[in-house]
Simulated scan of single mutants.
Amino acid sequence: MKSLFKVTLLATTMALALGATQAMAEDTAKATTDTTATAPAAPAATAPAAAEPAKFKSDDEQAAYALGASLGRYMDNSLKEQEKLGIKLDKDQLIAGVQDAFASKSKLSDADIEKTLQTFEARVKASAQQKMEADAKANEDKGDKFRADFAKEKGVKKTESGLLYQVDKPGTGNAPKDSDTVVVNYKGTLTDGTEFDNSYTRGEPLSFRLDGVIPGWTEGLKHVKKGGKIKLVIPPALAYGKTGVPGIPANSTLVFEVELLDIKPAPKADAKDATKPADAADATKAE
């Protein structure tokens, strides 16, 4: 769906047309498959021979077919995404438009086509916006309920910012500071259990400066020490907020299980720089 809104009007027109042709072919194939599925199995001796590989008269002919098939698959996926927005295009009319265009007898003028597609594009964008807002509200509601339920579990604590955490193993030594580099293993999921990141499966811990990640991590990891394990339930405001990122929808509450493997203090000069205000000389230069 995201890629659909980035294509130009001309590209949208081409993709829609080619997608319709592919959809017609798929419908025909599906009908054939359904009919075959209900027929009694033929004896082995009379089983039909395997279909021969497609043959083309030239490389150009095969390339043209491959291009059409590739664009058709892309547009078929786009049409399915549009149906999720409540927009269902009439495949018969799509096919008729393709055939009429190739026969140079389109029922619409170029101006009519452009105006219609502009209106259609606006509908798609409006529907997508409505769906995103509805999904964001649903995510917010689910997150609120999840956090309320989690807060009742044994050992769960809530900070002033709204962060919830549950220490499984406290660890030893000192808690990390903003300027420290920490090394962690972790698993991240949405409230429904959908996993979006996992350093364990990658087989490689993550190393980062504590003040260089989302606020929920910066605050949460200060409640555990080296060797410790903690569960963080992070509200959207301390994660990716109302925008989200790929794999994490807008207004998502995030659940992390984190193991703090190591803490590497920043060099003294870096730690000092991290705590002082902007350099006065730089500020003077800016003026």
Rank of each mutant, 00 (worst) to 15 (best):
residue 40 P to E: 01
residue 161 S to C: 08
residue 210 L to P: 13
residue 203 G to T: 09
residue 267 P to C: 12
residue 19 G to D: 02
residue 62 Q to F: 06
residue 151 A to T: 03
residue 218 T to L: 01
residue 123 R to Y: 00
residue 86 G to Q: 07
residue 218 T to R: 08
residue 285 K to C: 06
residue 96 A to P: 01
residue 125 K to W: 08
residue 32 T to S: 12
residue 262 D to Y: 07
residue 10 L to W: 07
residue 182 V to W: 03
residue 121 E to A: 14
residue 129 Q to H: 13
residue 213 V to M: 11
residue 194 T to D: 07
residue 16 L to A: 10
residue 268 K to A: 15
residue 146 F to P: 06
residue 180 D to Q: 07
residue 105 K to F: 10
residue 242 K to T: 13
residue 40 P to F: 02
residue 47 A to D: 05
residue 35 T to M: 07
residue 242 K to S: 09
residue 187 K to R: 13
residue 44 A to Q: 02
residue 225 K to W: 02
residue 33 T to D: 09
residue 14 M to N: 10
residue 118 Q to C: 12
residue 119 T to E: 06
residue 86 G to M: 09
residue 135 D to V: 09
residue 277 P to W: 11
residue 255 V to S: 00
residue 92 D to K: 14
residue 75 M to S: 11
residue 188 G to Q: 05
residue 42 A to I: 11
residue 21 T to R: 08
residue 20 A to S: 14
residue 68 G to D: 05
residue 270 D to F: 03
residue 105 K to H: 12
residue 241 G to W: 03
residue 192 D to M: 09
residue 27 D to Q: 14
residue 286 A to P: 00
residue 109 S to T: 15
residue 159 T to E: 13
residue 241 G to H: 04
residue 205 P to T: 06
residue 210 L to K: 08
residue 143 G to A: 05
residue 54 A to N: 01
residue 165 Y to E: 03
